[in-house]
């Protein structure tokens, strides 16, 4: 079990992503880093950030921090409260529907990401495969 979010969780997520053939297929042309922003809420007291450098179906670097300034800049940010992240990882929220219903926000070039929704879905599917502790 790895606590979400933590260095340990991020490491396990990166390993799982890199061994997920479906993600590699769907993201084979993707180039660009994305930061998961986990906002504090009633049950989680500090904002947290997960930086992922994604390139041609592989995750080249993954880092966790409680400070955004510690991390490299990324082209995209996917932002939601801790509670909604938890529901996303548990498979209760669809990653794109999450945006359309205002539970998550996406910052970055929309047209680019809309062409990689299959990769986005696989990224979330992979997160569900990490044995997460909340």
């Amino acid at each position: 079990m790895a606590k979400f979010p933590s260095d340990e969780w991020v490491k396990e997520y990166m390993d799982k992503l890199n061994s997920n053939a479906d993600y590699q297929d769907a993201g084979s042309k993707w180039e660009g880093a994305i930061t998961f922003v986990i906002l504090k809420d009633d049950t989680f007291k500090d904002d947290a950030y997960i930086y992922l450098d994604l390139y041609h179906g592989k995750c080249r670097e993954a880092r966790f921090s409680n400070s955004l300034t510690d991390l490299p800049k990324s082209e995209f940010k996917y932002i939601g409260s801790y509670g909604n992240w938890r529901r996303l990882i548990d498979g209760e929220i669809d990653p794109i529907k999450g945006i359309l219903t205002g539970k998550f926000k996406l910052e970055g070039a929309m047209m680019k990401i809309m062409r990689y929704t299959r990769a986005a879905k696989e990224m979330v599917n992979t997160a569900s495969k990490v044995q997460s502790e909340f």
Partner: peptide, 20 residues
């Protein structure tokens, strides 16, 4: 194949589909 796999139709199709 490449263009089709970028469509959002792949996301909401009831069965997941790989490039192959």
């Amino acid at each position: 194949v490449s263009l089709a796999s970028e469509s959002t139709g792949c996301l909401t199709n009831p069965r997941e589909s790989s490039t192959s």
